[in-house]
Amino acid sequence: MCLAVPARLIEVDAQLQGFVDAHSNKLPVNCVMVPDAVPGDWLLIHAGFAIHRLSEQAVRKTWDLLEDLERRVEEDSHAIG
């Protein structure tokens, strides 16, 4: 169960309400489970909550692997970089 998608933190306020960017989809996210997250971090988003902070390395690994499979990744690559 449990859909979760990676997205990059754009901003976060003192109440831990923030916004993330998931490939040009900007959405509000609650960061109470990742209180140390700072803008630029990659987070795993589930039901409006960030449930995990991903390392840049982990994100890169995942996307590098995916690029092998996906033909149309041109737009993706600069969104990550």
């Binding site: 169960m1 449990c2 609650n30 589930h46 039901a47 409006g48 909550f49 449930i51």
Partner: peptide, 12 residues
């Protein structure tokens, strides 16, 4: 509803 992935969101 949901398991421990979703339950913290309910808690919050």
């Amino acid at each position: 509803v949901g398991f421990e992935t979703t339950a913290p969101a309910t808690a919050a």
